[in-house]
Structure formats: structure tokens, C-alpha cells
Computed example of a mutant assay.
Amino acid sequence: MTAPHTSGEPVVRPAPHRWLWYALGGGLPARSRGWVLHDTTTGTWWARHVVRSLVQMAVPIALVMVVLPAPWGLRVAVAGGGVALGLVYSLAYMVEATENRVVKAGYPVGTAGAIREARWEEREERDRRRRREAAAKRAARYRDRAGR
């Protein structure tokens, strides 16, 4: 299975332990190169980025919850603040982080952004075409009712 706008490489999903390594910032084997491009350019690329960020924050947050010598309410507040701050930074550098993953997989800089932009333009063109067709149908219906 290949995704549109890719180099035609197969999309080979990594094993769970390799995905965990990938989520923590590690690289994947060459056979998963097409999947990295798919992961960073699919329609849900931003949600996938958020999930990877939460996985990265899981260990420090778990340590705060277990090791911090404080009441549970304070532990939860500190962990929640950490997650919120981590997500702010993660979202602020989302495009750069996903582009870095694509470069790490061996693609040129800007590949993921160019693919996402091309897909956005295709989607916009489909929406424009759909709106034009709907407007033409409404106009025809109005002409038919008016007896013209």
C-alpha cells in the first residue's frame, strides 16, 4: 500500500517496540521509511504528533506522580502543569519536529510540508468544485420553480 505523493515506497508499519522508540525520537529501519512519510503527512498527522508527545512525557510525569514527596493533589497539579507546558512547546514546534522525523528517515528537508500543502490544495479544489456544483443545482432549482 502506498500513499499518494510519496516516492512509491511501501508503507510498512513498525513493530510496537520500534514505534515506541520512534515516538521517543529514535529512528526506524529503512523498510519503515515510507511509513514515516505517511505518519507525518496523513490527515491526522497533528494528532499523531500529539500522541508521540504524550508518550515522551509519560515517563517524567509518572516519576513525578510516584516519587514527588507531596500530597496527591499537588502531584496531580504538578503533573498536569507539566503536561500542559509540554504540549504548548510540542505544538509550537510541531511542524519542525515532524519535518525532522522525515529528514531522519532519509527524505530531503521540506518533503513533509510540501506533501501536506499539496494535499491541502487538492482538498480545497475538491471543496470549491463541490460548492460550485451545489450552487449550480440550487440555481437550476430556482429557475425551474420560477418557470424560466
Results as ranks from 00 to 15, higher is better:
M1I: 07
T2Y: 09
A3V: 06
T6F: 02
E9R: 09
V11A: 09
V12H: 12
A15K: 15
A15C: 08
P16G: 04
P16L: 13
H17D: 15
H17K: 10
H17C: 11
W21V: 11
Y22L: 10
Y22I: 03
A23E: 06
G27E: 04
P29W: 05
R31N: 00
V36Y: 04
V36E: 06
T40K: 12
T41M: 04
T41N: 08
T42K: 11
G43L: 11
R48K: 10
R52G: 07
R52C: 04
L54V: 14
V55F: 04
V55N: 06
V59Q: 08
P60N: 02
A62V: 11
L63N: 07
V64L: 09
W72Y: 06
W72P: 06
G73I: 09
G73D: 10
L74G: 02
V78E: 01
G81C: 05
A84K: 05
Y89A: 03
S90G: 15
A92I: 00
V95L: 01
E96G: 10
E96V: 12
A97Y: 06
E99R: 09
E99I: 09
V102K: 11
V102Y: 08
V103T: 13
V103L: 06
K104A: 15
A105K: 07
G106R: 01
G106Q: 01
P108N: 05
V109R: 12
G110P: 07
G110H: 02
T111M: 05
A112D: 04
A112I: 00
A112N: 03
A114F: 01
A114E: 10
A114I: 00
E117P: 00
A118Y: 12
W120D: 12
W120R: 15
E121H: 13
E121L: 15
E124P: 02
R126E: 13
R128W: 08
R128G: 01
R129V: 04
R130Q: 10
R131W: 02
E133A: 12
A134L: 12
A135Y: 02
K137E: 14
R141L: 06
R143N: 04
